[in-house]
Amino acid sequence: MLSPITAYKFGFVFCVLTMFACDSKEEIKRKQYYIDGQALYKTHCANCHQEKGEGLAGLYPPIAGSDFLAKNKELILCSMRNGLMDTIVVNGKSYRQPMPANSQLQALDVAEIATFIYNEWGGEKTITEVKDVQKILATCKNKVE
């Protein structure tokens, strides 16, 4: 059994360590992606999906609390750039409004938006890497270019 003082000491060391962990390169990059992704989200996505990701009525599906996120990451990445014409079912509700393409978005933009969305609402704690996004974008079925 640890004495309370030792426990505090351990706690202190742990806190200091996590502080250093926060400053790791990985973490700085994740924060950068998150912040840039949030700005891009506000510009390109929030008009429809709203700033807090709640969507709009039966027109635009929610992203926050959506069961679509975890299962369809590749489709979502593709749709950010190429749009989506299909009906999708989110939380048991059908959405038919087409999602417009944003073909000006680069792989980095898509990676940053995905990092923001999946960290904010998808329970992820990691970056969506550009090189993974590039691979996925190359295989999208509904390419606009």
Binding site: N47, Q50, L56, L59
Partner: peptide
């Protein structure tokens, strides 16, 4: 217009 990707959803949110 219903497929407008830019300002219309904002307008519709407000009109709502």
């Amino acid at each position: 217009f219903t497929t407008c990707p830019t300002i219309c959803p904002k307008m519709k949110t407000q009109m709502l």
